[in-house]
């Protein structure tokens, strides 16, 4: 059994073998592997005894349940109006230049994916970005670059 299959088996065991566990199981996979591979979805379908079309149909609905490969660190910069007014474009441009990728792309070393997101719920402290589960409010270009720098230092 592959590591993905073992992980799925374990997630299903912990969350329960019912359709209601589908979201936590898919979320658990994304936590480990950054996205939902075909193998992972096939394995979920088998473990939960539902059709793989159902798994894909659910996964493809949710922004955070990616079905295409993503980097280890997923950056989501808020693009909604108040963050826009506070200068999210400069932040996005700076990150894009520093990482040498456009919004929606992943760096070749698979360390970072740069995305935008709808309102992250920090309008009083914009601009703001989410990296994986961690939130960084009150951004300036310098701050954003420092934060990315710190992530690149982390062990791969």
């Amino acid at each position: 059994m592959s590591t993905t299959q073992l992980m799925v088996k374990d997630l299903v065991k912990r969350n329960g073998r019912t359709r209601n566990s589908l979201m936590p199981v898919l979320q658990g996979i994304v936590q480990e592997e950054n996205f939902l591979s075909e193998e992972a979805m096939l394995s979920v379908a088998e473990e939960l005894d539902i059709s793989v079309a159902e798994v894909y149909s659910t996964a493809s609905f949710y922004t955070f349940l990616d079905t295409v490969p993503r980097g280890k660190n997923i950056i989501r910069v808020c693009k909604t109006i108040t963050c826009h007014m506070k200068g999210k474009d400069e932040i996005i441009n700076a990150l894009s230049n520093a990482l040498k990728i456009k919004v929606g792309e992943t760096t070749s070393d698979k360390q970072f994916t740069l995305l935008t997101a709808n309102c992250l719920g920090w309008c009083h402290k914009g601009p703001v970005m989410l990296i994986n589960d961690d939130i960084y409010p009150d951004l300036t270009v310098e701050k954003a670059l420092d934060i990315i720098g710190a992530y690149s230092q982390k062990p791969k």
Binding site: R19, F64, L65
Partner: peptide, 18 residues
Amino acid sequence: SGAYVCGEESALFESMEG
């Protein structure tokens, strides 16, 4: 998992049901 419409109560139930 990042879907605004899931705040609508019946969509929220659907989401909880996988």
